[in-house]
């Protein structure tokens, strides 16, 4: 079975197939996002406590989910690339790093903006935000390592190991930050839970979550295609593509 998977994952094959998939994924992503925005900004009722500021949640929460989800995907893809030495898995791992870091950054910014009206300051050492900040450093570590190593293949394998080490540490870091948070501030006001989840608030949250997942798929495929072109630049099919491109 692995032999088949190895054949399928030939760069040339991957490049062609992903080229076909991207437009569909993009359209679906747009559709879900528009539906999510419509539901979130127009249909969902105003919250009796937070008024309309809670609508930031429809961007903040999916982004936070994505930051963790993408790190997991990166670690798993990296692991597969390392163990079975499948080039494509390595490429998918490293292509996820930048978009994962972007979602983490987005979660941090929107989290702090959402917190401002509630607590009056741009940053609060809330457990979730603090874990998100550390996750951002983990991502930046992966990206920095990838750029620091000259040889592309060694760089990809080094970052895969780092991602695996990181993914083992994420739950430990999260637990220790939760522990640290309850130690200093007590589990009171800074709970970040969404307001009493009214069903009509849940829909936009899920729609946006699906939209972000589709968006990740589009971006990771786009980046992977560039990485494939870069790595296969001496092959005939890439040379043909280059000629075509002019």
């Amino acid at each position: 079975m692995l032999r088949f998977f190895h054949q399928l994952a030939s760069p040339k094959h991957f490049y062609r197939i992903s080229g076909k998939w991207i437009p569909w994924l993009g359209a679906a992503c747009l559709a879900f996002m528009l539906a999510g925005l419509y539901q979130g900004l127009l249909v969902a009722p105003t919250d009796y406590q937070q008024g309309d500021s809670y609508r930031i949640m429809f961007v903040h929460v999916p982004a936070a989910w994505m930051s963790l989800f993408i790190y997991m995907v990166m670690a798993i893809a990296g692991g597969i690339g390392l163990v079975w030495r499948i080039k494509l898995a390595e490429i998918m791992a490293i292509s996820s790093a930048h978009v994962g870091a972007s979602f983490t950054f987005l979660a941090l910014i929107t989290g702090s903006i959402w917190g401002k009206p509630m607590w009056g300051s741009w940053w609060v050492w809330d457990a979730r935000l603090t874990s998100e900040l550390i996750l951002l450093f983990l991502y930046l570590g992966v990206i920095a390592l990838y750029n620091a190593v000259e040889d592309r293949r060694t760089a990809a394998r080094a970052t895969s190991i780092l991602a695996l080490v990181g993914v083992v540490n994420i739950p430990i870091i999260h637990y220790s930050v939760e522990w640290w948070n309850t130690l200093h501030q007590g589990p009171t006001v800074t709970k970040f839970d969404a307001p009493s989840i009214d069903f009509r608030m849940l829909i936009p949250l899920l729609l946006m979550a699906i939209a972000f997942k589709l968006f990740y798929a589009v971006v990771v495929l786009l980046r992977a295609r560039v990485e494939v072109l870069q790595r296969e630049r001496n092959t005939s099919w890439v040379k043909a593509l280059v000629a075509e491109h002019e």
Binding site: D151, R152, Q230, R231
Partner: peptide, 17 residues
């Protein structure tokens, strides 16, 4: 009777073999 046998070795550096 020791033998070291290498088959179809390929080494790529900077995407050049």
């Amino acid at each position: 009777t020791d033998t070291l046998e290498a088959r179809d070795l390929t080494c790529i550096r900077d995407d050049r073999s």
